[in-house]
Amino acid sequence: MQEKSLIHKSQQGHIESFENLIKNYQKLAFNIAYRMLGNIEDAKDATQDAFLKAYKNIDQFKEESTFSTWLYKIVTNTCLDVLRKKKKIKIYSYDQNIETEKGKVLREIADEENTPEKIVEKNEIQKHMQQAIDSLSEHHRSVIILRDIQGFSYEEIAKILNCSKGTVKSRINRARQALKKIIKSGELFDKDYVKI
């Protein structure tokens, strides 16, 4: 009930109401973006862009879905756009391995000593899991993040990704198979870290 009135006020342009409205969802939204894009900077930009889009277009929010689903949908789409643009520019991603005299190092280590990522991802396995997720295709990445990291239901995922439940089922299965294979082959990281 309270959410309804916040939505109503946001539709009239009231910023504070909009900020209250997204308060409970912004952390999860940011985490979706972080797992999708693999680094905090891009995730912050994408989340904020998505929120601005939501604010501008809140008139178009129909109460067919919950507000949170609508918001996560915008966040996911914004991230997918970012990924597509990145693909076009064809730059190396942060996590691509580069060769040095000492052997293989991770591209991101050099300028990352004190960034929040370093502090957050204390656990090496977690770091390598993110790399494994980064190497999934866009579609597979989004379902793994929504289902296995954030724990959305199949129905919610179908709404967020704007596809049918059948597609979600098939895609989750494919994505898990792919992820499993990456972890098993350890092709993106040293085998010592992940023992399965």
Partner: peptide, 19 residues
């Protein structure tokens, strides 16, 4: 079992705070 393991590795990924 390997798929269960992969899923549980995903679930263990922490939520990070907003910048």
């Amino acid at each position: 079992e390997m798929m269960l393991e992969a899923i549980s590795l995903c679930k263990e990924l922490p939520m990070i705070d907003l910048p």
